[in-house]
């Protein structure tokens, strides 16, 4: 204030003094308004603040827009309960109302993503992620284990048999037509499990890399998995053999019934770790310029749940890698037979 006066005396007394007086009056009025309005809203929704913070924010915005009319505050208080329901994202609201998050997971075990521990409980990376999301939402977790193929897991979400799916699902364009994918929670490379004897009999070239690039012969993939498409795309000359489980593929490659098995690098490394005796028969290869990104699956309209999951993945401390996961769940790999 003193500063203001000194300035006004020194330079141009008349116009600045008027401006300062105007400013002061405006400030006083706005402070009074703020005080009045704040006290009024806190009086109208004391319970809402405690229970539902988002709803409070929504309502205060509304109140601010209509701050000039104090009479409207009473009407807002009356409509409070209905406004809360309409303002929650419907996909989240459905889960909160139900009190549980339903996540689709493939019926079979697939360590280290989903398997059963010693006590018979579901465990694994995907189960951990699902549980964490349920905890963040403040609801219970329910698993839908009815799907028997990876494509069936996607279909379960598509037909709304679950709120979402976390089941080692690879992000593919074909699937993305019908469902939405989160950010990848694990990015792997693709790999091949090749029968050494049959590879030595391939006469395309002396160079093993050239032979693999132009792979001809029977290549096994899991029925109803993304690798059926990957195989057509990457190795058009190979003939597709769809088998029921990864276990069947590994056995067939070991026995020389098919030339190779095609899957992600984690499964390739898992075979190496769990079946050391097969190393004489099996050659492992990782394709450095390929990608297999695992992501969570959502129905197309669950935009908010998707954003919620993405935000959770973004805030994770450490990024998952194939080796970190294999290490974290090493005990499961050693004790369990390598099913699927």
């Amino acid at each position: 204030m003193r500063c203001c006066i000194v300035y006004s005396c020194f330079f141009a007394p008349q116009p600045l003094a008027v401006l300062a007086r105007l400013l002061k009056r405006c400030a006083t009025i706005s402070v009074c308004c703020l005080l009045l309005w704040g006290g009024g809203s806190s009086l109208t929704t004391p319970t809402a603040i405690a229970a539902q913070p988002p709803t409070v924010i929504a309502q205060t915005n509304r109140s601010a827009a209509a701050s000039d009319q104090a009479s409207r505050s009473a009407a807002a208080a009356v409509n409070n309960e209905q406004a809360e329901i309409a303002l929650m994202p419907p996909d989240i609201q459905r889960i909160v109302d139900r009190g549980k998050l339903i996540v689709a997971v493939l019926g079979n075990s697939n360590a280290p993503f989903f398997m059963t521990d010693e006590t018979g409980q579901a465990a694994g990376l995907d189960i951990q992620l699902a549980q964490a999301l349920a905890d963040q939402l403040g609801v219970d977790l329910e698993l839908n284990r009815s799907p028997d193929t990876f494509n069936a897991v996607v279909d379960t979400v598509y037909y709304r048999g679950a709120d979402m799916a976390i089941s080692k699902i690879s992000r593919t364009m074909k699937r993305a037509v019908r469902v939405r994918f989160s950010h990848p929670y694990l990015t792997m490379r693709q790999g091949l499990l090749i029968n050494r004897l049959l590879l030595a009999q391939q006469t395309n070239s002396d160079n093993v890399i050239e032979t693999i690039r132009e792979l001809t012969g029977d290549v096994g993939v899991i029925k109803g998995s993304s690798y059926v498409g990957f195989l057509q795309q990457r190795f058009p000359q190979a003939s597709i053999v769809e088998l029921d489980s990864w276990e069947d593929i590994v056995t067939a490659v070991s026995q020389g019934d098919i030339l190779a098995g095609y899957r992600d690098e984690l499964e390739i490394k898992k075979v190496v770790k769990t079946k050391p005796d097969a190393a004489l028969q099996l050659k492992t290869a990782v394709l450095t310029d390929t990608q297999d990104a695992l992501a969570m699956v959502f129905p197309w309209e669950s935009a908010h749940l998707l954003a919620f999951a993405n935000q959770y993945l973004d805030t994770l401390d450490a990024e998952y890698t194939v080796d970190s996961i294999l290490e974290e769940f090493a005990t499961y790999l050693n004790t369990q037979p390598p099913t699927l």
Binding site: P276, T284, V286
Partner: peptide, 19 residues
Amino acid sequence: LESLGGLVNQSSIDLEMSL
């Protein structure tokens, strides 16, 4: 056979290659 395989498999992946 298992210990032979363990010998063969000291580095978990035999070949890293690009397509």
